[in-house]
Design a protein around this nucleic acid. Structure first.
Lengths: 165, 165
DNA sequence: GGGAGTTTGTTGACATGTCATCGAATCTAG
DNA sequence: CTAGATTCGATGACATGTCAACAAACTCCC
């Protein structure tokens, strides 16, 4: 790693802008979500992913994978959400180790009443500020990066010390 | 809030892509940073912002504002970094309440040795995957959102209950 | 000058996330 | 079948972030 290629002015502007937007958008969306619906962003995400399945039920590991969370984190978080009556755990029929996360009626009500406001906030603070071309560009670019990061080669490098090609 | 305007297919693609990228990029950058430099992302950000000042010293509140962190969070974090010898606190000459955060030689070495690798990672996993047009678009769009979120009107809405216009 | 109100940074209690470990169940070879 | 390896989810210890409260210092303004 000799003479590092620093970011030029435009790249730096994009990178800093991205990080700043990230932070501010997070703060604002979380703030509105708590205020309007009494949910945290993680809460919302769990409920949202669950409610997208036909039965409102998902295997814990499956939910963790979709959310890109560790099973541990999800397990802890579910315990808290369970205490608030938003979800329940059920035993898994075909795999006795497994547990199935189930949306309770209260959980469904929570996400259904939170969603419109949250989507509106996402529009107000992000989507509606962009031109259609920018929306498409953002979609294209983020998916490219996601594909890159999900690449098996990278995954491998994370587990093995990696003998440089 | 009647009939909510949900996200259409393209908007949804952009929004999901953004969140997924956010998460994966975070994980990967944090992973490499810890492995290569023994720093967390928050550590890196603190050191980076400090090192961008001529003397490597900043008023705590000034640093907190730049980073968009609460003073409390920064204070806690500095305590930990101080224990690792990366920064020090000094008293502020013109304001006896204030404290000045100072980069130690070890802190400077840490950021200087971490920076090239980190920038390379940012390139590898983000910047170099984008076309020049996309870099510009990302810069433009993020700054627009940031300006919007930093808008005084919004700020006001956060403190006052706001009597709807 | 001096009291009311603000700002600054720290602190402790608590919420949340990470990491290593564990027991139980499942899978795989032989 | 069964011993060994793997996967699943829970858990406890710990790191990190948030929030409210606080003391000390500053600012206003009379």
């Amino acid at each position: 790693m000799d003479a590092p290629r620093w970011l030029d002015e435009r790249e730096d502007r994009a990178w800093r802008g991205y990080r700043r937007m990230r932070r501010l958008l997070d703060l604002e969306l979380a703030r509105e979500l708590t205020q309007d619906a009494g949910l945290s962003e993680p809460d919302y995400d769990v409920l949202s992913d669950l409610s997208e399945t036909p039965q409102g039920r998902l295997r814990l590991s499956e939910l963790a994978d979709r959310m890109l969370w560790s099973r541990s984190r999800l397990s802890h978080h579910l315990t808290r959400m369970q205490q608030r009556g938003l979800v329940t755990r059920e035993e898994c029929a075909d795999d006795a180790r497994g547990s199935i996360v189930v949306l309770t009626p209260a959980g469904r009500r929570a996400i259904e009443s939170a969603a419109p406001g949250h989507v509106a906030a996402v529009r107000r603070h992000l989507i509606d500020l962009l031109t259609p071309a920018e929306v498409d560009a953002l979609g294209a670019l983020t998916h490219r990066v996601v594909d890159h990061l999900a690449d098996p080669g990278l995954r491998a490098a994370r587990t093995q010390p990696a003998t440089e090609v």
